[in-house]
């Protein structure tokens, strides 16, 4: 399974190695790791809780992967998104893409993250000194996804 939603942490090195293991046509592996920050909208973030929609979230990630595979020739795609309570500094999300050349790997990696941020049902709730609050969606994320064209 190349997309996964899990509470556990992940190992970037192991995922990158797995992405090109046994496939000698792979010349490029691009990866992205998202981390919890300790500051958002000017406020200290003590931790956050990631909620998702079991069943739909996995399906949405699989669809995003399929769209990336239609656009580019990719040898491996791996998406891991964590859920549950996470502290600043912890890893939230991983995207790894293997391809013959860097152009496709870089582009597909960015596409996957842009679509994940606007299409996959995850919600963040932050704990700040003033109390808990739901993170609001950003229009800049919509703009980032829209530059790839299509409607997702």
């Amino acid at each position: 399974m190349s997309v996964q939603v899990q509470a556990e942490d992940f190992d970037l090195g192991a995922e990158v190695r797995a992405a090109h293991a046994g496939c000698l046509r792979v010349g490029a592996v691009a990866s992205f790791v998202g981390y919890v920050r300790d500051l958002n909208e000017g406020d200290e973030v003590r931790d956050l809780v990631l909620e998702h929609y079991p069943g739909m979230t996995e399906r949405a990630l699989e669809r995003i992967e399929a769209q990336a595979r239609e656009r580019w020739t990719l040898d491996a795609v791996r998406v891991i998104h964590r859920v549950g309570r996470l502290a600043p500094g912890q890893q939230i999300v991983l995207v790894v893409v293997a391809s013959a050349h860097r152009g496709e790997a870089f582009a597909a990696c960015e596409f996957l993250m842009d679509y994940l941020k606007t299409q996959a049902p995850f919600w963040k709730k932050e704990q700040t000194p003033a109390g808990a609050r739901w993170v609001e969606a950003r229009s800049s994320d919509d703009a980032a996804a829209q530059r790839w064209g299509g409607n997702g």
Binding site: H81, I92, V93, K117, T118, A120, W123, K124, W134
Partner: peptide
């Protein structure tokens, strides 16, 4: 049928 806010993952 599910109702939810705009998504904020990643």
């Amino acid at each position: 049928v599910a109702f939810f806010p705009p998504v904020t993952g990643g």
